[in-house]
């Protein structure tokens, strides 16, 4: 990725009168961290980066930012929000358009063709993080890690995030402007994580998920980071009726996790953010990808690729064969 082009485009977009701010990525405060950047003017674009460390899906901020009531006598700010998207992130934008969570003229989408990002946990495990902010680059087929003035070449296979290994849309599917040439797509390969769990018998599968959900601290980070979890009034916050008790135990945690997963069936665009942020290390991606695969195989539907699509959970066909419904 050409940083100069990225920053130049960023500066132009952030300076537009009809743009409130531009969402991009910037170097974090230490180690491998990258932080979301809210760029309000051309000067701010100088800190933008796009690298294999840019895992965050910024589309979540399109619906996450809280709006204060407009004071009497003032006009609401109707300027657009601009954002940089990788392939997966662009699918979130598309899905939001399908669901009318956002309108097309409310956003400016800057597409970043994406060769794949690293798995941050794996990176830190293999190359222990230090307090000096580190940089990373794509280098042909490999990753290049630059820290404390030293360059280390690391093969793509060693660090590529699982979601990227399985990615079928590395090039943004929606954009107003594309930064550079599209990347060549790759064969997604087997989803070993999902297949391993599928291969278990019912009892050991239950045991596996019991162990996982038992660790959940109900921080709702997975929900909040998800670009497609944006209900104003989430059932998990409801007390009357209480769909899921506040008590943190296996039973309630399971109820919560099932609710989250089902509400994302046919909507999750597999950006992997929920799994990345989970402080309890629960492999949420396996659940989402299993549901996504079932929706794809059984209904032939894939979310976030066609802005004109009918939302999966809101569509009904009278001639549905229903051949697998009990």
């Amino acid at each position: 990725m050409d940083l100069e082009l990225l920053r130049k485009t960023g500066a132009e977009v952030a300076a537009r009168d009809d743009v409130k701010y531009l969402l991009g990525w910037k170097q974090g405060t230490y180690g491998y961290r990258v932080a979301p950047a809210f760029v309000e003017n051309a000067a701010g674009a100088a800190e933008l980066i796009f690298s294999p460390l840019c895992t965050a899906n910024l589309a979540t901020y399109l619906t996450l930012v809280e709006q204060l009531p407009v004071p009497r006598g003032e006009e609401p700010d109707t300027r657009k929000v601009a954002l940089m998207v990788k392939g997966c992130d662009s699918r979130a934008v598309t899905q939001l358009l399908v669901e009318k969570g956002i309108e097309r003229d409310e956003v400016v989408v800057i597409g970043c063709p994406c060769p794949g990002v690293v798995d941050p946990a794996l990176l830190a495990e293999k190359y222990p993080e230090t307090e000096e902010p580190a940089e990373m680059k794509w280098d042909g087929e490999d990753f290049l890690l630059i820290r404390n003035g030293e360059e280390t070449k690391i093969s793509r296979d060693e660090l590529l995030a699982e979601k990227c290994r399985l990615c079928r849309y590395p090039n943004p599917v929606v954009s107003d402007e594309m930064l550079g040439e599209p990347v060549e797509t790759w064969a997604p390969g087997e989803d070993k994580g999902v297949e391993e769990v599928e291969a278990k018998d019912v009892d050991s599968r239950l045991e596996y998920w019991m162990d996982q959900f038992d660790k959940c601290v109900r921080c709702y980070s997975c929900r909040n980071v998800c670009p497609l979890c944006y209900c104003q009034d989430c059932i998990l916050d409801r007390l009357n009726p209480t769909w899921v008790n506040r008590s943190v135990n296996f039973s309630e945690n399971t109820a919560f996790n099932i609710a989250r997963a089902f509400h994302l069936a046919g909507r999750c665009i597999e950006c992997g953010e929920c799994e990345r942020v989970c402080p309890a290390n629960i492999p949420l991606g396996k659940i989402n990808r299993k549901l996504a695969r079932d929706v794809r195989d059984k209904y032939g539907f894939e979310p976030g690729v066609d802005p004109e699509a009918e939302p999966f959970q809101a569509s009904y066909k009278p001639d549905d064969p229903e051949d697998f419904i009990l």
Binding site: A35, P36, F38, T60, Y61, L64, V217, R218, C219, Y220, S221, N224, V225, L239, T242, N245, R246, S247, V277, P279
Partner: peptide, 25 residues
């Protein structure tokens, strides 16, 4: 705070955070 997700991570995992809620279940 611009990029904060409003999750429970920094507080639930903080050893000094002590806020609680009381509920009948």
């Amino acid at each position: 705070s611009a990029s904060c997700l409003g999750c429970g991570t920094c507080t639930y995992l903080c050893p000094t955070c002590h806020c609680f809620d009381i509920q009948d279940e």
